[in-house]
């Protein structure tokens, strides 16, 4: 069974199930713009929670509990009503600072990214922020970001209730140690190894002697993902859902 799953599992599916495992037991997960894999993970976690997990997904009409415009998500976060959120970065550094603005000496950026979105706020206020970036290269995972859209840590006088929980990439998973302000490699995806990850990571991080392989999903989880969840994802991310899961029926 495990061999069967490993052979049919798309890399994106493993990322989805890995992130979904980080959301179990939560009450409310919000998903921002351009987040098909985190969005799929949130919907998978919701499907497994038997409806206990609320998902608020930007761009979705089915999964949006808000009636007070774009600001309501942020107001909810400040009140502690959002347990988990996802952020990414054109650059992410070893202290979990993220850069969504550009490469080079701002404002004269050589490469311009889309912008900071709500990161400079939500990173401070959502307890479990999962950093997600599929591309795992020294170009993305840098020693120090060129521009801090949102800092990974703050001075102790900041009233900060949120911050980085983990970093999930196409090669593996890191936990973040807030006290040491450092990542620790916690698992390696099948087909990748620790040397390769060290080589393609631009920042220094902690790692044990033996790093486990990222846990594969079980059969029922995969079935749920490829069935009900795929259809739900298609409502917000039709191109992604079709590419990954084939024919889907948006609800």
């Amino acid at each position: 069974m495990n061999g069967e799953i490993a052979s049919s599992l798309a890399p994106e599916e493993l990322l989805i199930t890995t992130v979904a495992d980080m959301l179990s037991g939560l009450r409310h997960v919000a998903v921002g713009a351009q987040s098909p894999i985190p969005g799929s993970a949130a919907l998978l976690a919701r499907a497994r929670s038997d409806g206990a997990l609320r998902v608020s997904m930007l761009g979705s009409e089915t999964h949006s509990p808000f009636t007070d415009g774009g600001r309501e998500l942020f107001d909810c976060a400040a009140q502690g009503r959002i347990d988990a959120f996802f952020l990414s970065g054109g650059q992410i550094d070893g202290e979990a600072n993220i850069n969504l603005v550009g490469i080079g000496d701002y404002p004269e950026t050589k490469v311009r990214f889309p912008g900071s979105f709500g990161s400079a706020y939500l990173y401070f206020l959502v307890p479990r922020v999962i950093l997600f970036r599929e591309e795992h290269t020294a170009r993305v995972l840098v020693p120090k970001v060129d521009f801090v859209s949102a800092p990974g840590s703050s001075d102790t006088n900041m009233n900060r209730t949120g911050g980085p929980h983990a970093l999930v990439t196409g090669r593996g998973v890191f936990d973040f140690d807030a006290n040491k302000r450092r990542f620790r490699l916690s698992s390696v995806h099948p087909g990748h190894d620790t040397d390769e990850i060290r080589e393609h990571t631009g920042f220094d991080y902690d790692s044990g002697e033996q790093v486990p392989e990222t846990r594969l999903p079980d059969g029922p989880t995969l079935e749920l993902l490829r069935g009900q969840v795929a259809d739900e994802v298609a409502e917000t991310y039709p191109a992604f859902a079709t590419r990954l899961f084939g024919a889907v029926t948006a609800p």
Partner: peptide
């Protein structure tokens, strides 16, 4: 809330 420590603030 938030923002402090972001380079956005400097600009």
């Amino acid at each position: 809330r938030g923002i402090i420590g972001s380079d956005l603030l400097e600009h």
